[in-house]
Design a protein around this nucleic acid. Structure first.
Lengths: 98, 98
DNA sequence: TTGATGCGCAAGCAGCGGCTTGCCTAAGGT
DNA sequence: ACCTTAGGCAAGCCGCTGCTTGCGCATCAA
């Protein structure tokens, strides 16, 4: 929604790693992401930590969630990423100034 | 030089506002930025707060500093912004393919 | 010189953010 | 029925961070 949530979500390196994993293999479950982070990045975070990270990413609109049975699959949404960095790349952009 | 500093610098809304001001009017001094933030965005931050924000932006490579006399002019550098968000925009061709 | 301006340094405080722990429910397999 | 797996909720701890305050130094004008 607002850019603030996107920037905050991207501020954490663990969340950026989660986006990396989803970019490489989309539609993973929570425990699947936990396993990948532990195996490929030596991340000793608990399941709750990853779940909270995913909640932040979801609130920012960077991750979409769909439930199937007892699973919770996460899909990457790169739409918010395409307009946030362009904010300063142009000379003058609409935003706050009337 | 690592992306981590750039993401951390961009996580704060005040620092993003500073980048906005520099994008609109480059090469401002510290007190000039303070005045603009106070007048245009109703930011009651002290000079030290803005100075520390500028230090973070400088450490991230987003702002270049040049001293002239007792002034300290700040120039925006958008180079780090052009490659950080593209990290997840490419579907699959990242990897190690030559 | 004196005074004012522009800025740096360092300690200190309050709030937030990331992570854990513990207990809980739901779904699926045997 | 039982047990395991997948995930949710809430409280709590601790480190980081943003901001302030106070003092000190350098530069420019009178």
């Amino acid at each position: 929604m607002t850019d603030d949530g996107v920037w905050k979500a991207l501020a954490d390196p663990t969340r950026r790693l989660i986006l990396d994993e989803l970019a490489e293999c989309d539609g993973q479950s929570l425990s699947g992401i936990c396993a990948r982070l532990a195996r490929r990045h030596a991340l000793g975070h608990s399941r709750q930590a990853v779940s909270q990270h995913l909640a932040v990413l979801e609130a920012a609109g960077l991750v979409w969630v769909r439930r199937e049975g007892r699973y919770r699959f996460h899909d990457l949404n790169t739409a918010p990423l395409e307009h946030i960095a362009v904010r300063w790349l142009r000379p003058d952009l609409s935003g706050d100034a009337p």
